[in-house]
Nucleic acid binder design. Structure first.
Lengths: 193, 193
DNA sequence: AAATGGTATTGATCTATGTCACTATTATCT
DNA sequence: AGATAATAGTGACATAGATCAATACCATTT
């Protein structure tokens, strides 16, 4: 059950067997069926999620009812609304399973305990968050400077695997364009090939 | 010289005097005059900067020559191109002083040494980067869902101080709109007041 | 004081992309 | 199997905001 978690952590930092045993005691497993939510807008994000299997998306719904995808999470990735998790304030995001998924959940108190006792994990999460920040900064700059087609092409190269597993209208909302525009771009690209 | 750095760190974590003394030895001070660059596109980002005084902006220039502001940095903030700093790859960003500024610079080797020896700082930077990620995610979602006017209004509330110190066309490029559009929005808002 | 370069405003026009509406296709559920 | 819902494609039209161009205004430098 914890193999993937162990693998992911040790890819980045060293951790003793003892520390990892302790780590294991703090997570609770949960299965989440397709289309079910683990976090709904207005709730407090009680858990940080490690995704063992499946696919999640975190998204926000704006005043006009349009959905905007913050992130897709695949096996071996972490997922949470950081702001809500760390402040205890209600979340603006929803987190939904797009496939039947298996999660490992850790609460804020356990998380605090874990980082205090295992400094290597403080470092692990620092690096994780740092990489996420780099990617998010790139997405932001891209949203300013790239055309719809460039955004789609970049996504193809960055996450080819996600494209196969997620409906197009969610892809569109991840790159911040309408589903119609994405459909037309794909049509164009198919002709040019 | 190091008061602000000490203050900022101890706002978030506890650090012994001894550790802070060690910390001090790793930074080198530098003055940067208005309009001078500390990082240019294509260079490797050799330093992470702590800004003691002044104002920096990090920005990217796209193929059409348009500038896009990633971040303004004020007194007490940190600034770097994370990707370039951590990988040693050439940077896509420029970092420029918008006012005469006083910096404290730390190199990658020193930074590694520092975090290894002072775990509290690992935590400090984790929290710092985490907060930056939260803000960047919000900017990204905003870039998808907000009108130009909403983007400007949100900026007014988030960073009122920056508005007084930065020319409008840079504000515009921070929120991802043209300077003409920003000018018109401000005109509209002035009439409605 | 003139000259230079950065900055802001405003009008006219253009365009990429959104929105709306309809149809076709494919999954999913009972 | 049939019904329902989710997904995808496409045309017609609308529009927010970009782009282009001209002007005026400052602030710095010489």
């Amino acid at each position: 059950m914890f193999e993937l978690l162990h693998q992911k952590i040790t890819e980045t930092v060293s951790i003793s067997d003892e520390d990892f045993e302790f780590c294991k005691t703090l997570f609770q497993p949960k299965k989440l069926r397709k289309k079910r939510f683990i976090l709904g807008e207005g709730d407090v994000c009680k858990y940080t999620i490690f995704l063992e299997k499946g696919l999640l998306r975190s998204f926000k719904v704006d005043e006009k009812g349009a959905e905007h995808v913050l992130q897709f999470s695949l096996e071996g990735w972490w997922c949470a609304d950081l702001y809500s998790f760390f402040t205890g304030e209600p979340s603006n995001y929803n987190i939904e399973a797009l496939e039947d998924s298996e999660l490992l959940l850790i609460t804020k108190p356990s998380w605090d305990l874990l980082l205090e006792r295992v400094p290597a994990l403080e470092r692990y999460f620092r690096i994780l968050i740092q990489n996420n920040l780099i990617v998010t900064q790139r997405r932001l700059m891209g949203s300013f400077s790239e055309t719809a087609e460039e955004k789609y092409n970049n996504l193809i190269h960055a996450f080819p695997d996600i494209l196969q597993r997620v409906p197009q209208h969610m892809i569109a909302s991840y790159i911040g364009i309408s589903r119609e525009t994405l459909s037309r771009i794909r049509g164009q690209m198919a002709i040019r090939r």
